[in-house]
Design a protein around this nucleic acid. Structure first.
Lengths: 207, 207
DNA sequence: TTACAAACCAAGCGCTTGCTTGGTATTGTC
DNA sequence: GACAATACCAAGCAAGCGCTTGGTTTGTAA
């Protein structure tokens, strides 16, 4: 189950928009604009211009501007949850599962879905109360993947610190890479993964 | 040199506004509103109402709304840089200096200046190009404090990972605490500091 | 060819925004 | 007590905002 087939499966189930369709293209441009200028500074005219239509025509696809923000976030979480799940399942030991999770999250933040992930981090305050509740609900599924793995490592005595605290520290540290990491800076995502694992106080198998 | 005297010294030098003055009170309310609602969603009418004046009267104190955002950020960096400097100087070993820095940054993020620090993290995109350049300049002084200490630990073989990467990971992890840490949750800032230090792969004195 | 829905345009409405203006209290100074 | 300078108010302007409306084009299928 590679990344492409996971995406295609989600598209087939109508959980994620086809990236090549009109709606999918709009969401991609929206993510880019929201990340670059922020949600509030991005006007519906900006969004429309980015996909080459009139501003009023946007409201044929989405009822409100906020619905666009919500869709960007919801679809991104759905996709990355599925990718994470696959990453966990493909690894054997808990230690390898953790590494796979870190690697996958770095990929989601600094790869294809990077714009949308940045929006998820920086623009959640612009969501309405109900949209926020729904997004948080989806996020919990995602977070449970992490807590399961960290909890197992904790029980095995490999991880000393509290899994909840560790996850939150990791969330911050990994999210923040979006503000400074550049793939052309001589540091690959694998290098970065190594540094994170090394920095975590996870005792190696031999000690 | 305690925290209060540091603040008073900065006020005397006109680098930070007196918190009890009109300007200082406005900046405090602005920081709170900007954190809660975001800069763009906060109107000048909101700001004026928070300090009990008419919206037009704001422009007697600040030329533009953006100048208020800039002032919140600049004064916060100035204060926290001074506090960090004192924290570093009061510690003897590099290891203790690192702990003092972590503790001080957690304090700045989750204590009195918490609102303003959150603004610094989440609202920097709303700054104009020039304001951003100035803020980054001030930030560099602040960051150098960290890199000096981390560099010393690295040279001594206490810290294995790259100081630049470690600092950036720490920035993310510590900033993120603003989204989840609550002092009434049974975890003190000292506890949290311990967890961070423990999580960092800094080898203890005995190994 | 006809029928119909989906996708889009052109125009603009009603409202909110940051900020300005002209004038009035309030404060500090000699 | 005269006189600025400072701090504020009341009113409103011009621009930009999200979104609506009524009508036209495009795609699809019988």
């Amino acid at each position: 189950m590679n990344q492409d087939s996971i995406l295609r499966s989600l598209v087939a189930d109508n959980l994620v928009s086809d990236p090549s369709g009109a709606r999918g293209r709009l969401l991609r441009e929206a993510a880019r604009l929201f990340r670059d200028k922020g949600y509030e500074r991005t006007t519906v005219r900006d969004l429309a211009a980015a996909v080459g239509i009139q501003s009023g025509s946007l409201f044929h696809h989405f009822r409100t501007k906020e619905e666009i923000l919500k869709a960007v976030m919801v679809e991104t979480i759905r996709l990355n949850t599925a990718l994470m799940q696959a990453a966990v399942e493909s690894a054997d030991s808990s230690r390898e599962k953790l590494r796979a999770l870190i690697r996958a999250e770095l990929e989601s933040i600094n790869g294809q879905t990077g714009e949308a992930m940045a929006v998820l981090v920086f623009e959640w305050r612009s969501l309405s109360e109900e949209s926020r509740a729904y997004v948080l609900e989806l996020r919990d599924i995602y977070e449970q993947l992490w807590l399961d793995v960290l909890g197992a490592l904790h029980r095995d005595g490999v991880l000393a610190a509290d899994p909840f605290v560790v996850r939150r520290m990791l969330t911050g540290a990994l999210s923040w890479t979006v503000t400074w990491y550049r793939p052309d800076g001589g540091l690959t995502l694998d290098d970065l993964t190594d540094q994170v694992v090394a920095m975590m106080g996870v005792k190696g198998p031999g000690t």
